[in-house]
Nucleic acid binder design. Structure first.
Lengths: 133, 133
DNA sequence: CGTTACGTTTACGTGCGCGTCAACTTTGCT
DNA sequence: AGCAAAGTTGACGCGCACGTAAACGTAACG
């Protein structure tokens, strides 16, 4: 088997974060490393969660928002009430992401337009320059 | 013509931001409202910029990053050096946005999978409940 | 003329997401 | 036994993006 657990340094190297960040996420209840004596050991579950955390951050979600969503990915043992509550949260999140995707596509389109305009401008300047030489 | 300029309150209502935010953006050189006496008047240009600012924020860009990019949308009078510099910045930004889009699509896919799994679990619970009645 | 409404500057306060010591165990060499 | 490496828990600090309160200007209205 590939290493079952990672110590804090291995975890940091694997995800390019600092120890401080991992401890901070644990304090915020985003990660739950097990303890070997006093030291933290990060499980496969923690690695999956951290991946989602970092992705969520890139999308502009707060750690608190992310914390709530992480439950969706680990609702193996939830009771029905908790499960459906989480499911509703996930629906909202999905809607938010799809809205973000639509807006992102629009923004990309606009930026491309602007860049085409800028490229033309640059071409004109280059032309002027060469004819003036 | 529709109102040429907006005062601060109209601007706030139009974009759902606070006066503090608009003044803050001006201090950070993201907006350049003209002055009528001491009061700010927001032009069409300011409205276009604010729209881009708010969008940029939703995508997780910092105000400083956004400030640099706003130049691309107003590089009417730039010299070639400045122009091509801005163009390069825009290329980077475009790449970042397209990467973000790809990752977003992946995340949406995964979330949908998880939700399907959750839906099934919920269905099972519902079934058990009805058979137990 | 007062006061009410709207805007202004100045400046300190706040929440988030960590960075950065300091002081202390624990572990593994040698 | 000694000592360095790696990890730990506080606790304070910091940059960002504003919130918020204080004190002031000014234009309009009754």
């Amino acid at each position: 088997m590939t290493t079952e657990t990672l110590n804090i340094r291995e975890m940091c190297d694997a995800f390019d974060v600092t120890p401080r960040t991992l401890r901070f996420y644990e304090a915020k209840e985003l990660l739950f490393p097990i303890r070997e004596g006093q030291k933290r050991l990060f499980t496969k579950r923690d690695r999956a969660r951290l991946k989602l955390i970092l992705r969520g951050k890139r999308f502009g979600f707060s750690l608190e928002e992310i914390r709530q969503l992480l439950d969706l990915y680990h609702m193996n043992d939830g009771q029905e009430a908790q499960l459906s509550k989480t499911y509703v949260l996930a629906e909202r999140h999905l809607a938010a992401m799809e809205a973000q995707k639509a807006e992102l596509e629009e923004a990309i389109g606009e930026l491309k337009e602007q860049m085409a305009w800028g490229a033309e401008k640059l071409a004109q300047l280059a032309k002027k320059k060469s004819s003036a030489a």
